[in-house]
């Protein structure tokens, strides 16, 4: 109870943090007209793939929680492992996106679009990384056998955080990738 409340509060606070970064991004890329560079320099297809990975990691985590409640440790480990792997794959995808941008000289200091893009996605990536570290610790605990009390709030608390990270990405994905593509696609 305490832990879940705490995590909810922290997540709420983090949401406002991301909102501020997101508003900055919107301000710099959508105003006064949508920066046409956004759609042309970002790779929607590849990122969609990695987005699916990240979002499905929420599903695997949900399965992990279910197995945990039912006391099935083996399944729990498997689902947790899946979640961690999917998270890592997402980070790798983000890394490849960054490296392709950097190889085209689109660095942080290139302009307001890259500045706000890297800050927003970078901070999200940082949160994914923190999530992966925490999940790995939880996974390690399951192997140690320290996670056998089905009433423990540990897993649900981590879950709130992990789902939050996914939701943030969903929003970021829509605003940074999908919407510009869609808008510039229709108006040449």
């Amino acid at each position: 109870m305490e832990q879940k409340t705490l995590i909810k509060l922290v997540v709420g606070s983090e949401a406002i943090f991301f909102l501020a970064l997101l508003m900055a991004f919107v301000y710099f890329t959508y105003v006064p007209v949508l920066n046409p560079r956004v759609a042309s320099s970002l790779d929607l297809n590849r990122t969609s793939l990695f987005t699916v990975m990240l979002l499905s990691s929420s599903v695997t985590f949900w399965r992990a929680e279910v197995s945990f409640r039912r006391g099935r440790t083996k399944q729990l480990r498997l689902w947790l492992l899946c979640t961690v792997v999917l998270g890592v794959v997402f980070l790798v995808g983000q890394g490849s996106e960054y490296s392709s941008l950097l190889s085209r000289q689109l660095t942080v200091s290139k302009g307001t679009f890259t500045t706000s893009f890297f800050t927003l996605t970078g901070f999200h990536g940082l949160h994914v990384l923190i999530g992966i570290v925490v999940l790995s610790i939880v996974l390690y605990l399951t192997f140690l056998g320290d996670l056998d009390d089905p009433d423990s709030a540990l897993l649900p608390s981590v879950g709130i955080y992990w789902h939050f990270v996914d939701v943030v990405w969903a929003v970021v994905f829509v605003i940074v990738y999908v919407l510009p593509h869609f808008l510039t696609g229709h108006t040449p």
């Binding site: 970064l21 942080v108 307001t112 500045t115 890297f118 800050t119």
Partner: peptide, 15 residues
């Protein structure tokens, strides 16, 4: 805001 300012100052960003 502070994070953005740090990006501006340390990574030469343009917020």
């Amino acid at each position: 805001a502070l994070v953005m300012l740090l990006v501006d100052r340390q990574l030469d960003g343009h917020f």
